[in-house]
Amino acid sequence: MSAMTVGILGGGRWGFALARAAQVAGNRAIVCTRRDTSDRPEGVEVTTDVSVLGARATLIILAVPSAVARPVATTLGDSTTGAHYVVHAVRGLSSEGLLPISTVVRQETPVKRVGALAGPVLAHDLLEDRPSVIAVASHYPEVIDSVKAAIASPSLRVSASDDLAGTEWASALVGALLVGVGFARELGVSEPLIAGLMVRALRESALMGIAAGGLEKTFYGLAGIGDLMAAMAQQDARPEVAFGQKIARGARASELAAEMGVRIEPIDLVPRVLSFARQRGIKAPVFETLATVIEGKGEVAEITAALMRS
């Protein structure tokens, strides 16, 4: 197959990691970003002009934080047509409701053939060509084919699913659970108990995912349990874990976010998914606890005791 050009919107580590994956797969990558890109992988083209992506690539990967996904997608919409494929690599749901980012893309652009990337893959593994596995979900088989052609290689296995909503919800909720992992670890909760709680939390997540139109099995696949296992095994690899630890030491969520300099998606996400669950009569004690933790309310002993009882 002849080389293709993959457009990547977002110049964080994640964006360049995906650009590297495209290179390894024998393709060209253009990254659109306004950030400083001095440490980018060799051979990756950079532009500040979004319209370059639309003109040169059919497949565009959106790799920005969920908070800016909407405005970025709006801009992208000006230089895309119905012929483009847009796949996002955002771990989160849109900040102004619980819309999956693929829905935001469909609202803000003329593009209909959308998809999502998720799973246990880490940016630095991709940047160093270490063998990894990534999940792609789309309702459109050709989007999946295109993503495979773009980034699959002997060092990156692409696993496909047609459960887009489930994949996006799983990916977002795992991020939230990691806060709980960090929190519990800091308090000296044993790893087996954390594992037990996470299994429960994953079931709660799956129930919410089903209510949002996803499939249960997706939560027990790469985007759910796969991502969770990877993040739990990797000490401090994800900011959510570190965030949970600092909360346990008494820091306040709002101050922490500013101090850590990264966006902690679960701060906004947890209260919103909780009210989503309540509206639908889904019992989610672990998420209830998580909300209490993030708000900084409640005594640790009480929290633990309540969880053991419920």
Binding site: T81, E108, P110, K112
Partner: peptide, 23 residues
């Protein structure tokens, strides 16, 4: 028109690699 009011060519949705295809 898309949800943002931009004009879009409906034929573009059935193109793959530039060609109109049934799928």
């Amino acid at each position: 028109i898309d949800r943002r009011g931009r004009t879009v060519d409906p034929i573009s949705y059935v193109r793959r690699d530039g060609r109109i295809v049934m799928d």
